[in-house]
Computed example of a mutant assay.
Amino acid sequence: MDILACIKRVPDIAGTVALDDTGTGIDDSGLGHTMSSHEECAVELAIGTASATGGTVTVLTVGPAEAVEQLRAAVAVGANDGILIETAEADAFAPEDIAQVIGDVVRDRAEAGQTFDLVLLGNDAADTGDFQVGIRLAYDLGYPVLSNIQSFTPGADGLEARGIGPAGTEVFSLDLPAVIAVQEGGVDPRYPSITGRMKAKKAPIVEYDAPEPGTGSPRIRLELPEVEQSSVTILGEGPEAAPALVDVLEEIGVIRP
């Protein structure tokens, strides 16, 4: 099974998050970069499935030249090659634009003789959280689509996919070719080996210039939630704090007076 896994270069927001001057994006000037956790799981599922079925994994991203770092990170854990659709203004692309770009690549590769049985994406990106690209891509390609999927098993006629819904685990049967938006939690992404890192440095990365976005970003402004202030009350020290502790436990209902 040949799989296309789509990833995105996003800021590593483990630290303090600040908005850029436009207020529509994250100021990443002082941040490192990575791929979204959903997409790490999508890459893991792609590699495991391709290995079990004798297929290949191609990773694709739309972003700046530096995004080749994320492509090579995916190759280091088992992907075969990468595609960089280069643009210095990735934030100018709406989900519809990104879906169109990916769809064009799928069609171009099919015309050249390479067809993808499955296209995987993260359920949403860590920076924008649009939740739209997978659905729009499936519509553009005319493929069936599933979202919020955590794992799947290939079969003779398609896939059996599992995800978490309002009532618990949901199981779906899906014909191929198809699009799946992956949610983290179903698999553990692997870590690259030294051999994988060496392989990634030499892996083929095909580069294209991104077209002009047809729709453009609809984002007006992002807002950071206010930081909740917390306070600490010191009840005392040693045995002398016991009465005050008992009072607090009685107040919150843990013990009865």
Rank of each mutant, 00 (worst) to 15 (best):
residue 215 T to W: 11
residue 203 A to L: 07
residue 123 N to E: 14
residue 14 A to M: 13
residue 34 T to K: 01
residue 120 L to F: 01
residue 160 E to N: 06
residue 104 D to G: 12
residue 151 S to K: 13
residue 17 V to W: 00
residue 98 I to C: 07
residue 233 T to I: 02
residue 107 R to V: 09
residue 74 A to N: 09
residue 93 F to T: 00
residue 242 A to Y: 12
residue 141 L to W: 03
residue 154 P to V: 05
residue 34 T to L: 06
residue 162 R to M: 03
residue 147 S to I: 12
residue 185 G to T: 09
residue 246 V to H: 13
residue 38 H to Q: 14
residue 29 S to D: 11
residue 57 V to A: 08
residue 29 S to G: 15
residue 69 E to M: 10
residue 34 T to Q: 06
residue 68 V to M: 09
residue 132 Q to P: 05
residue 142 G to C: 00
residue 201 K to H: 10
residue 150 Q to C: 09
residue 204 P to S: 02
residue 116 F to G: 01
residue 62 V to N: 03
residue 185 G to F: 13
residue 251 E to Q: 15
residue 255 I to E: 03
residue 172 F to E: 03
residue 50 A to I: 00
residue 34 T to C: 02
residue 192 P to H: 00
residue 8 K to Q: 14
residue 211 P to S: 02
residue 158 G to M: 03
residue 2 D to R: 15
residue 107 R to W: 01
residue 190 R to F: 09
residue 110 A to K: 08
residue 138 A to V: 05
residue 21 D to I: 13
residue 79 A to D: 11
residue 55 G to F: 04
residue 43 V to L: 07
residue 52 A to W: 02
residue 168 G to S: 08
residue 107 R to D: 08
residue 186 G to L: 06
residue 206 V to I: 13
residue 240 E to L: 06
residue 88 A to Y: 02
residue 167 A to Q: 12
residue 156 A to P: 03
residue 124 D to A: 07
residue 6 C to S: 05
residue 75 V to M: 07
residue 162 R to C: 07
residue 202 K to T: 06
residue 175 D to L: 08
residue 188 D to H: 13
residue 208 Y to G: 04
residue 231 S to D: 15
residue 160 E to L: 12
residue 90 A to N: 03
residue 52 A to S: 15
residue 22 T to N: 05
residue 221 R to Y: 04
residue 257 P to E: 14
residue 34 T to A: 01
residue 133 V to I: 13
residue 241 A to Y: 08
residue 215 T to Q: 10
residue 197 R to V: 07
residue 77 V to H: 02
residue 174 L to N: 04
residue 186 G to F: 02
residue 190 R to D: 10
residue 149 I to M: 04
residue 239 P to Q: 11
residue 38 H to P: 03
residue 101 V to G: 04
residue 185 G to A: 12
residue 239 P to T: 14
residue 241 A to E: 04
residue 81 D to C: 13
residue 123 N to F: 11
residue 12 D to N: 14
residue 83 I to T: 06
residue 114 Q to A: 12
residue 34 T to V: 11
residue 82 G to W: 10
residue 47 I to V: 15
